[in-house]
Amino acid sequence: MITNLSWSKQTSFENNHECNSLIKIRDFVYNQSGLYFSETKLDSLQKKLSPRIEALNLNSIEEYYYYLLYDPSGKNETKFLFDSLTNNETSFFRDAPQLKAFQGQVLSDLIDAKGEKGHKSLRILSCGCSTGEEPYSLAILILERLGKHLHEWHIEIKGADISHSVLSTARKGIYNQYSLRNTSERIINQYFTPAGNDNFQIKDYIRNMVHFSYLNLRDEASMRTIYPADVIFCRNVLIYFNETSKKSVIAKFYEIINPGGYFFVGPSESLFGLSRSFKLILFPGALVYKKEV
């Protein structure tokens, strides 16, 4: 009985330590990336960390926390940390109504406005692009939209993400059936080549339309590397952020979107209560934000 009690005291003491370290890691992650694990999500944070802790042969979350802070190779560790904590779920042509609004009215509006001024250039940014499906989808949509006029335009599409591992997948441009589950046969035949094992690789001329780079939305120095854009996609990324970091990222986006440009968030996301700068435009089946001219 007594041993039992002291044992349980012991564990709870240890748990407490572990719990504190977990919270410290949570805060560290939040400060570094804006990804926020609330009290109810701490469990999931722990689950996501444990494979990495085991791989490093460390014995506790606390040890991992110190490794992260003080180990000479700890700088690199944040890279692994973000790789294992981010949710990278995505697919080609995710949320058709939004992309239809992009390819239709949004592009028409931009093409008209730019054509008038004689600047035939378009800059599109996919922030939190994961393994590249989103920016490549945008490249295909633009290509199909401009058709034979494509060569008159200077098109720049950038995919950016905090996770290096998704970026290297994106650069290779090889995808499985799951990534292509919303993609028509016609598109696959036209813009991909079989790459074995039921995989497909995006053709080079599409691949060359998109450039990938590291971006941490929460890091000011990193944010300074992104240029003004006509359209920013940041879909299903801010949902992992808390209100304060959402607000600051959105304010930054507002700053770098060109007047008359557009901002897409995920289909169930909203800027209500986060920013009053953008105009909300209702499109068939999609809500899109616009920065006034």
Binding site: A101, Q105, K279, L280, I281, L282, P284, V288, K290
Partner: peptide
Amino acid sequence: KFDGEDIT
């Protein structure tokens, strides 16, 4: 036809 609208 519906080309999108800022309802406000």
